[in-house]
Amino acid sequence: MAGESHGPMEQFVIKPLINLQLGGANVSYTNSALFMTLAILGTFALFWVATRHRTMVPSRWQSIAELTYEFVGGMVKDNVGHEGMAYFPFIFTLFMFILFGNVLGLMPYSFTFTSHIIVNASLALFIFVAVTIIGFARHGLHYFSLFCPPGTPLPVAFVLVPIEIMSYFIRPVSLSLRLFANMLAGHVLLKVLAGFVISLGVVFGIVPFAAVFGVTLLEMMVAVIQAYVFALLSCIYLNDAINLH
């Protein structure tokens, strides 16, 4: 890879590792797929190590697993209620998938699959369609009342309903763009700052190096927060579908 372009966008290039074709479509196993696999293995390893000894007083790893479980479980229960616990495995998977995608992507020479809009958009669109189906399945045509909260005066409703409909359909866009933009901006910023370290040399390079250090910490925080935000918003949308108002 050395000698190729080293622009800030080079880190997002999809590189096929194993060429595969499926029904005429190119489904090669790429660096993106590799890091998705690592996210699965990482999650499995975390919960395997954490629950290996099963002690009453948890070890550190067991504490991490328990805290994550109770954090996501609490998020689903608080935002969707007890009926929402049926979707707890899905939300938990979503959270772990994005969390590992974001955090693994911060390792040098790694790839961040959540920095690709197609991945985020697929997830967001799936949630949008699933939530809409759940909403109509549970409430029938009454689900349309989501666009007009009860007690809205008629003149206000003429303005409110189009806004509500628009905001409903913008959900998958905002959900996927938020994660995409955060990951993209963070990684570009890191790459650009790291480039300054090289160009300024050993003496003055210390300044952008300190900045890279700080931004890396910030990006760690962003990685966790964005995984949380994605899962939380999915919970809120799910709550609309299950409990309506």
């Binding site: 479509a25 190119n26 489904v27 797929a33």
Partner: peptide, 14 residues
Amino acid sequence: ATFASQIFWLVVSF
């Protein structure tokens, strides 16, 4: 060109 592969492995991985 990369979308099909990404979506395919996203579904499989998820």
